[in-house]
Each structure stands twice: as structure tokens, then as C-alpha cells.
Design a protein around this nucleic acid. Structure first.
Lengths: 232, 232
DNA sequence: CGTAACCTTGATTAAGATCAATTCTCGTGG
DNA sequence: CCACGAGAATTGATCTTAATCAAGGTTACG
């Protein structure tokens, strides 16, 4: 695999050529098409992934088979690093599985798999990497904290939060139009609900003249009201 | 503060005397009585804590003022480490607050506050500490993952999970009796519900002859059934 | 032994899931 | 270019779970 790609990954930015080469040797580029499963939460842990192109979703299956999306991962971000820090012997003996399921949500999704064995040594030698990982994990912890907090609010509330978040992400300067990149089904799952309930929440916002919709495009007509709903 | 106490904290086990002394200098032992607030999520971040004696709860306040307990912390465990790994400049300028609220749940709860400035240097020099922190954070991530997963199940399910977990913790060998250490109110909040609903769930289990209760003592009469409920 | 904190019980209400139909959208082949 | 069909999205009716509201009962402890 070309070690040049790795250089763009924030996690590896401090590595010298030799180290980069080492990671590269034990990493591999993998391609997935839309809907393809990257791993199930029952599979033994091999290593963590970096998204290079496309996007993936991390999800759990609850009781009756419904999926609950925990997050989406976009280029140059990593996922499934957590088991790395278990006792290494256990990973070697396949005693660890992935903590959730992962699936590609776009065609031509390109990922790098970094095998845990390769990474283990590096982590122990290179303090800078450990610190970067700490940064990444703490970011994830903060995210999960927010996630848990927002799960205590009702669905319109969560949807309002989501729309505002997307609005902030998307330039926001000149236009009030945002486009959601995922299917409504995935959005419902991400918000912790089902298609019908999401649909009704969208309808409610339209009836109240807060948004206008055109397929996957949302035009925000009353940001203030939306913010009020999101805030409480 | 006596640096001998610090030696018992797993996080610091690899430190030499000099390093330990350094941490000690910038740490302080604090005592709290039951119900005393350690920090609110609106206060600027000073550093993380280690529980030495007693116990504390970490919680969020949701919309209407109800509290939602995220976890309990017991002796020799740390809490509120996450903001440590933010850009240090921001912490210095008080731009970070604690991520949630913390309160003592026992009298004579003794905590050590490790100020982030002291710790910052250490973390950058001592790879072993960074690795231990990685272990601690990944453990927490796994915990939150489970927490999110269990929040998708109904209350009897979550209660069954809790009872089994407690049963496993408590020796479990000879007796089926377990004692819950926290109030039912805190348990309700931890399970993400209210007192009345928890009470009804307990009643349901008693009516079905799964458990028997005597105050805060639970006698498990049918572990198998309990496991079935917990499993789905 | 009295009072406050803790816990339980019952009746009612509300949010969202489930079940069951439609309707909409869009790509494909005739 | 149109018609068809499949998947996506919407809508309505009903059901379930747990929150809310309102009393009571229990326990612990000064």
C-alpha cells in the first residue's frame, strides 16, 4: 500500500518515513460498495480503520433486529480503535470482537485497515501517537456524552438539533438550504426512532412553517424557532 | 498531600518517587459529605479527580430538571479526565468546563484533585502514563457503548441487567442475596427512569417469583428467568 | 415517637412504536 | 417517451410503555 496516503492522516502526521513505512507494510487498502458490511460485532478484532474516501456508519442491532446508528465516519477519521488498548495478549488470542457493526453507506468507500499488531509497537515507542490517540478518544467520549444527553429529549427536539448542526456545518453563510447526505431511514435510525416518526416530525416542522422540504433538501424558514426547539 | 496515597492509584504505578512527588505537590485531598456537589458542568475545568474513599455519581440534568446518572465512581478510579486532552491553551484560559455534574453519594468521601497543569507535563514525558490513560478511556468508551445499547431496551430489561451485574460483582458463590448500595432513587435515575416506574418493575419481578425483596436486599429466586429477561 | 425521607400504588395522559395502506419517486425496459 | 415496478416516504388508526399526577404507606433516626 502506498504510504503517502497515510501521511494525510492526522494520527500519523508526526511519524518519520521509516515508521510510516512500517505502518504501511501491515496496513491494507480495502474497497467497499454501498451496503457492504465492514465488520459485525461478533467478529474477532483485527485492527482499526481509517476512512479515505466515502463514508461508513457504526451501528448496533437492538432486540428485535432494528438498527441503531451510533455515528457516521467521514474521510481521514478513524474508527474501531477502542479494543487496541485492551491487554494485547487477549487480542492476539482473538478474545476481542469489534464493539459494534460497521457498514459502507456510499459506493467506492475506501478504507485502510491498520492491523493491531503493527500498531502495538509503535504506540509503545512513540509518545506523540499515544497523545494523538488520547485526543481522538476524548473527542469520541465527548461526542457520546452529547449523544446520551440528546437521547433524553423527544424526537422533534433531536431533529431540530440535527438540522441546526447540519446548517452550521454547511458553510451557512449565504443560503438557508441544506442537503442531508444520508437516507431518511438512516437519519431515523441515527435519531433513535423509526421512519414513520421521523416523517411526522418533519411534517410538524413544515406545518409550523419552520422548514420547507424538497426531497433531501431542507430550507430553513425560521431558524430562531428551530433553535428554540433544539435548546429545549 | 501525602504522596503515598498516590502510589496506590493504578494510573501512577509506574512513576518514580520524584515524579510522584511532583504530582503530589499539585494535587490536593478534598473531603465531601453526602449530597455535596464536587463540580457542576458549568464550572471551568481545573483537573481530574481520583476517588480514595466513598463514592460519587456523575450525572446530567435534562430539560425539566430531572437528573440522569451516567455512572458511579468507586475508590481508586478516576473521573473527569476527558478535557485534559483538549488543546492545553484553552484549558489555561478557562475555556473548558467539566463535561457533567458530580456529587458525593456517601459521607466522608475523599477525593484527590489532580490539577491539569501538573499533569500536562507528565503526560508528555511519560509514555507509560499516556498508555494507561488510553486504557482507562477505552474502558469508559466501551462502558458508554453498552450504556447506549441498554438504553434501547425497556425498564424491566435494564433492571434485570443491573441485578445480574450486581450479582456477578458480589462474590456470587454461595448466596443469592445481593444488596444494592445506592438509593432506589439513584438506581431509577441510573436506569434512566423515575422512582414509580422502578418500583413497578421490582413489583413485577416479585409477582413473577423472580426475586424477593427486603428493603435494599434482593434475593434472586430465579436467576434463569432473570437472565432471559436481561438477554432480551 | 414524631417527622422527614423514602418507597409504593393507583389513575390518567402522552409520546412514540406498530400495523396497515397509500402515495411518491425514479430507474429500466418496451 | 411512457408504463411499470420497487423502494422510499407518508399517512392514519391503534397499542404499549413509561411519565405524570395524586395519595398513601414505611422506615430510619434524632
Amino acid at each position: 500500500m502506498d504510504s503517502k496516503i497515510l501521511r494525510n492522516v492526522n494520527l500519523f502526521s508526526e511519524l518519520n518515513d521509516k515508521e510510516l513505512e512500517k505502518v504501511s507494510e501491515l496496513s491494507s487498502l480495502k474497497k467497499f460498495s454501498k451496503g457492504e458490511v465492514i465488520f459485525f460485532d461478533t467478529e474477532p478484532y483485527l485492527g482499526f480503520y481509517i476512512v479515505i474516501e466515502g463514508s461508513i456508519k457504526i451501528f448496533k442491532i437492538v432486540g428485535d433486529g432494528r438498527e441503531q446508528i451510533i455515528h457516521f465516519v467521514y474521510p481521514y477519521n478513524t474508527f474501531a480503535e477502542v479494543p487496541l488498548f485492551e491487554q494485547h495478549e487477549k487480542i492476539k488470542n482473538d478474545q476481542f470482537t469489534y464493539p459494534a457493526n460497521a457498514m459502507a453507506i456510499e459506493n467506492d468507500t475506501k478504507l485502510i485497515l491498520v492491523r493491531s499488531n503493527a500498531f502495538y509497537d509503535l504506540l509503545h515507542k512513540n509518545n506523540e501517537i499515544a497523545l494523538k490517540m488520547l485526543g481522538a478518544l476524548s473527542k469520541r467520549l465527548r461526542y457520546l456524552n452529547n449523544y446520551i444527553e440528546s437521547r433524553m429529549k423527544d424526537i422533534p427536539h433531536r431533529l431540530a438539533e440535527f438540522i441546526i448542526q447540519e446548517y452550521k456545518k454547511s458553510g451557512k453563510a449565504e443560503t438557508n438550504r441544506i442537503e442531508i447526505e444520508i437516507t431518511k431511514h438512516d437519519l431515523a435510525s441515527y435519531l433513535g426512532t423509526i421512519d414513520e416518526t421521523l416523517s411526522r416530525a418533519f411534517k410538524k416542522f413544515q406545518d409550523e412553517d419552520i422548514i420547507e422540504m424538497r426531497g433531501r433538501n431542507i430550507i430553513i424558514k425560521n431558524l430562531k424557532k428551530l433553535a428554540v426547539i433544539a435548546a429545549e
